[in-house]
Computed example of a mutant assay.
Amino acid sequence: MPALSTSLLTLSLFLATASATIPAMSGYHVVWSDDFNGAQGVGVDHSKWNQIVGRTGNNRELEVYTSGTDNVRLSGDGQLYIIPTKSGSTWNSGRLESITSQSCTSGGAMVFQAEIWVPNFTGSPAQFAGLWPAFWTKGQNYRSSGVGWPKCGEWDIFEVTDKLSNKNQGTLHFANPDGTPSRNGAFKGRVTYAGGQYHTWAFKVDRRNSDWTQQKLTWYLDGTTFYSVTGAQIGGFTLWTELAYNPYYIILNMAIGGRHPGNPTSSTVSGFAASMRVKYVAIYKSD
């Protein structure tokens, strides 16, 4: 795996680009991306993104996702801003889901990657209580075939809250073959990062080994592995296909409150200081 780790580090730091701001990766090509280039204050490219509206009903969260540019807009200098806002007791925010979904080709590898800035949660500051920015995925069968969660599968690539302080948690969510979620959330790994800075977060599906038990899912922070799971660890081929063979789509959102971060308080800030900022998102596949 050193070669891929090196290529991911190059992806974060090297000067080569696949397009305006999408970094190149040796041995891979870009199959989908967004560099968020556009005029200041305009919305995202809706040929690439579904902008979710309303409440999702997930995790007892408080936010209402909106359709306009108050909560989701371009910066004008090649960034996406997802900005939570508060009006009275109502929290509004933004959630984007990629229209594309991608699967890893048999015998190949695939990387989902984004460069992201979030507020500095180090020390669990009260001003960021209840904020929950995330870069994650769901299996395409959730929205195309009505397969419920967690059987559809979920990769949590980057999700942080004030309760996690300066740690990100990468997690797999899935279901047993009978549909029970008894192993849901059993696989998770944390990494310490410097808050209030841009970092490159990546998730790789690697099916280049013909033995499915040796195939691997890997999480990266700035090109360095911080967690990985093999087919052997999952322990069942059906479960592994849910996680490594099926197509997945990208989600970028700023949730507010709920079971995991806890609810915001009177000290929680809203607006730009509480925003999630994304320089690019890209999906790569091996050549």
Rank of each mutant, 00 (worst) to 15 (best):
S67F: 09
N209L: 02
V269T: 10
A126R: 14
W201M: 03
K163Y: 13
S7H: 09
E159F: 11
I250T: 15
E154R: 05
I256D: 04
G57R: 03
V160L: 03
V229P: 10
A18S: 11
S270E: 09
V64S: 13
T171R: 11
N253L: 12
F237E: 06
Y65I: 03
C152K: 00
I250Q: 11
G196V: 05
R73A: 07
I283D: 03
Q215D: 07
G88D: 03
G38N: 09
G139Q: 11
D35F: 08
R183M: 10
A24V: 08
G235A: 04
E63A: 09
E115Q: 12
N253V: 14
R55F: 10
R208H: 06
Q215I: 09
E154K: 04
G57V: 14
N141W: 14
R95W: 10
T105M: 06
T238P: 09
F226W: 06
W91Q: 01
D77C: 04
R207I: 05
G130V: 02
V30C: 07
S145D: 12
P150Y: 00
G236H: 13
S98H: 08
Q79D: 03
W136K: 01
Q140M: 11
S145K: 11
V160M: 04
V278Y: 06
E159D: 12
H46P: 10
